[in-house]
Design a protein around this nucleic acid. Structure first.
Length: 117
DNA sequence: AACTGGGCTAAAA
DNA sequence: CTTTTAGCCCAGT
């Protein structure tokens, strides 16, 4: 069953724009769960097929604070994440993500804080 | 009521 | 650049 924290996390992740990424700690903060990056990682592994409330949850747009894909290099999950990112023009070199702009726009963060859960 | 292992992190080496 | 170290949090078991 989905926990409240998972739901908050999924909804926050749904706000990541296509072609951009965010890191686990960042999502935790924006979801109002500071210090719980690991919970974000765990929760993204529990995303229901078909997403949440009819909306997909772009789990693959979440990476670690080093700007890399966190799944084990060469694993199925890694390849899947890499493919999905490349499908939206995000450049992946080895495990590393390349983005012109790695940070969230302030107005977006502002919007997220006001999400009505 | 412990115990554990993660899709973590920041800092240091 | 990389690896290590030492914190960190908590759902699942």
């Amino acid at each position: 069953m989905a926990t409240n924290n998972e739901i908050r996390i999924w909804k926050t992740v749904q706000a990541i724009p296509k072609g951009k990424v965010a890191c686990y700690g960042q999502i935790a903060d924006l979801a109002g769960l500071p210090g719980r990056a690991r919970l974000v990682g765990r929760s993204l592994g529990n995303v229901p097929d078909g997403g949440w409330q009819g909306q997909q949850v772009p789990w693959f747009r979440v990476i670690n604070s080093q700007g890399k894909i966190s799944l084990p290099l060469g694993s199925d999950g890694f390849e899947r994440q890499k493919q999905l990112l490349q499908d939206e023009q995000v450049v992946v070199i080895g495990t590393r993500i390349k983005l012109k702009q790695f940070q969230w726009q302030p107005d977006l963060a502002e919007l997220l804080f006001h999400l009505d859960y």
